[in-house]
Design a protein around this nucleic acid. Structure first.
Lengths: 101, 101
DNA sequence: CCATGGGTCGATACTAATACCGGGATAGCA
DNA sequence: TGCTATCCCGGTATTAGTATCGACCCATGG
């Protein structure tokens, strides 16, 4: 395969990322936030609505910078949304898609 | 425009990101690192060599997680290579527009 | 009533990211 | 010498991200 489709887990993470960013934006207009971050309002909206599951690192970083969010906090949030009940073991490598072939 | 080409600044940031990740990888084999992060070795190599300037947020986060890097530190490094002083805010978007309304 | 601002959505255009394939270069060791 | 491991590079295939355009809905205020 070449450029495999997004997995359901990635789509779910995209939705969580969008919800998190929209919550962090609060009352600020979407237009200003997008222009401040240096991207088009439509792109920001697609990210917030979760229709763009895996945006570029620079895009997320720019939005997080405008909103005053920590990238590590964002990643922790969308990677482990519910309480970290997992008792350690941070290494997961997604799902280790298929590694051994 | 639709999906404008990468600017020289973005290409430069991509090179810095790659150099940073390669430095952080140290002696670990590229293959293990890539598989641990859940991506193909080719993708990791392209990112490290700077030929992929704007990888997905999840991709960078996975690599940073494997290498034990802070995403905020990574972004600060590649966004402001010199003077990573924490006093300044992450200002992007060329000219910060004011909230018009 | 209409005008304006903010949000949403669909279709479309075009580039970039991810992955697999083959080959090649280098270094270390039997 | 050959063998293996690691890294690098070219091309190719396919999906995904980014951006523009158009239209629509729902408020608020003229």
């Amino acid at each position: 395969m070449v450029r495999l489709p997004l997995t359901p887990a990635e789509l779910e993470r995209g939705r969580r990322l969008g919800a998190l960013l929209r919550r962090a934006r609060g009352e600020r207009p979407m237009l200003d936030t997008a222009l401040d971050a240096g991207l088009s309002p439509e792109t920001l909206r697609k990210i917030e609505t979760g229709r763009v599951a895996t945006p570029a690192f620079t895009t997320v970083a720019a939005i997080a910078g405008v909103l005053g969010l920590s990238l590590d906090a964002v990643w922790a949030e969308i990677h482990r949304p519910d309480g970290v009940a997992g008792s350690g073991e941070v290494r997961d490598a997604e799902d280790s898609r298929r590694l051994a072939s």
